[in-house]
Write a protein that binds this DNA or RNA. Structure first.
Lengths: 172, 172
DNA sequence: GAAACTGCTTGCGATTTGCAATCAGTTGGC
DNA sequence: GCCAACTGATTGCAAATCGCAAGCAGTTTC
């Protein structure tokens, strides 16, 4: 654990770990996009994170205890990054931030559909989603239904709807 | 409004505005400490923000629409910063971040008492607090009871409890 | 008229960021 | 065995940002 920084305020301590432009982007992609490898996080990033920044953030998130890393049996160099309970506990923070963003910022419809569903579902849905993340990242028992599938399906639908009206090819 | 940055994702757009180490600290002090003047924000900051950083953040927050500024009738140079509805709407984000921080980070008891009360009170309490902020910052009608007083009283109590055991003078 | 206070700017060295190129080791196809 | 593709990074470098200290012009107080 790092020495105390600026103050013992929960908001301040949270900002000292997550208060930058990329940490939460990486966690978001792991959480909602189920990206678990370095290359997945690097190449499929909508925002185009640079490789050195990604490496640095993964290192910091590991040190902070938000994610863990284990070797991939299929490839000696490959690592699989997983959310820890501490990382999974950020679901309500993401839900609150995403809801705020979709209400006040110029979001695109297909990118905000998941935020909308999470906002409408409320804490009950967040809790189900967190159970699912524990299954995917912590080897907990598989939950009955998949919130991630629900979110991903809604996102895909929104993307298709967009393409139907714009008639403009784009990678999914 | 600024041009679109990296992506239309609500999380990303939120981070482009608030994703740094100081913006939310300034908003926190305005919201929970009711600090409305530049010097108040500068001098009473627990984390010791630098004057140029504060000036820059106030400018950015003004441009983003999170705060507003009006002249103080009592002093020609003085400005009063207020939260806008967009800023007040961050209450659930602060509550979620503070709750996460107090559960997983080495917070001090007196700094986390308010986070605890907000977590226990839930959305109903947040809503009352937001009404009070609308009264303080947007000239809305005065609400029946003051959540800010409740939070501040609990914080003062926690500080006094700390001093009683540590017997160590400190500014409040 | 001096001192204190107002919001804010400036200078400057240290750190961080963002981008491109590059790296060594691993795997799979032939 | 051999080479191309892929793995998780590292390195170099210019630009931006940060953090600290000092300073500034205008205002108020006494």
């Amino acid at each position: 654990m790092k020495e105390t920084g600026r103050s013992g305020c929960p908001i301040n301590l949270t900002l000292e770990i997550l208060g930058d432009r990329w940490s939460l982007i990486v966690l978001r992609d792991m959480m909602f996009g189920n990206r678990r490898h370095y290359r997945e996080l690097l190449a499929k990033s909508d925002e185009g994170i640079a490789s050195n920044i990604l490496a640095d953030r993964l290192k910091r998130l590991l040190e902070s205890g938000l994610i863990s890393r284990r070797d991939d049996a299929s490839h000696k160099q490959k690592g699989i990054y997983s959310l820890t309970e501490m990382g999974i506990a950020l679901v309500p923070v993401f839900a609150a931030m995403a809801d705020w963003g979709r209400r006040f910022l110029p979001v695109t419809p297909e990118m905000s559909i998941r935020a909308e569903i999470l906002a409408e579902g409320g804490p009950a849905l967040w809790s189900k989603f967190m159970d699912e993340l524990r299954f995917l990242h912590l080897d907990a028992p598989r939950p009955a239904q998949s919130v991630l599938d629900q979110l991903t399906a809604a996102y895909r639908e929104a993307v298709e709807r967009k393409h139907a009206t714009e008639a403009e090819p784009e990678a999914v």
